[in-house]
């Protein structure tokens, strides 16, 4: 069994999605709070606090510069953490996957459902965050509304990334490694809080490999109404890498759970 075997998936995957949605809705009040508060805190502290000392970054105010990055970061966090820690708990501790594959659903469909749900979490958080950003007047209407559908695809990118780590992690603690070595550096160095052009040239190339860089490129293009090359490459990157990681994550999971 290779890592690139094309999985066979039916609409059954949505039943797994639905299971996770049902659980989420049981505690929706708590779940809706963080994505609502997060942009307010960051905008106040960084945008209007630190931003007070910054006149203009790449032609816009600092608050307008970081606002789309906040959306990209929430897309990353929502889907990545859903498909790492939360999926791992369901897989390993709750044996939810075992229970589902005893029914007509296959393991491929279970993993796909988890990934779809991870992407949905990204959409939900974006939906809650955008009105806050509108209220602060730091993102353009109407083009920023396209961040909502984009959140799904950006979410898929990080959900599949997370699922690959979940498939190979020996213990739940080991998931701290990708969190600190991959997610945290990206959070800081993907053109989020300062332009990539300030980085030394080799690091700029490195940043181009990182998925968050491309997510930020897309959300920033939309929030500043700048339709150009970064938008196109960002979308292309998201499409290609997501497809690849989707196939790999399913095969890795099959190896972990069946073989």
């Amino acid at each position: 069994m290779g890592y690139l075997t094309i999985p066979q998936i039916s609409s059954n995957a949505w039943k797994v999605w639905q299971r996770n949605k049902d659980v989420f809705m049981k505690t929706y009040r708590v779940n809706f709070l963080p994505p609502f508060l997060e942009p307010i805190l960051y905008l106040l502290a960084l945008g209007f606090g630190v931003g007070n000392y910054i006149d203009i970054v790449e032609g816009v105010s600092y608050a307008r510069f970081i606002a789309p990055a906040l959306v990209a970061i929430t897309i990353m966090n929502a889907s990545f953490f859903e498909c790492t820690y939360s999926s791992y708990v369901r897989m390993y501790y709750q044996k939810t996957f075992d229970a589902i594959i005893a029914t007509p659903l296959s393991i491929e469909e279970v993993i796909t459902g988890e990934i779809l749900w991870g992407a949905t979490r990204a959409v939900i958080n974006t939906l809650i965050m955008l009105p806050v950003l509108f209220a602060f007047g730091v993102v353009d209407i109407p083009l920023s509304l396209l961040m909502i559908p984009f959140a799904f695809f950006g979410g898929l990118l990080f959900a599949t990334t997370g699922m690959c780590f979940t498939a190979i992690t020996p213990r739940i603690d080991s998931l701290n490694l990708p969190t600190f070595l991959f997610i945290t550096p990206m959070f800081l160095f993907s053109g989020t809080f300062f332009p990539l052009s300030l980085l030394p040239a080799p690091l700029q190339y490195l940043a181009q490999i990182l998925p968050l860089t491309h997510l930020v490129a897309v959300t920033r293009s939309l929030s500043l109404s700048q339709v150009g090359l970064p938008l196109v490459t960002g979308l292309l990157y998201t499409g290609v890498v997501t497809t690849l990681l989707f196939v790999i994550s399913i095969n890795l999971m099959k190896k972990r759970l069946i073989a």
Binding site: R19, D22, V23, K26, Q94, K95, T96, D98, A99, A102
Partner: peptide, 11 residues
Amino acid sequence: LPQETNLDPDF
């Protein structure tokens, strides 16, 4: 009916 209980604790 599995040997190890795998009821869904979220429900």
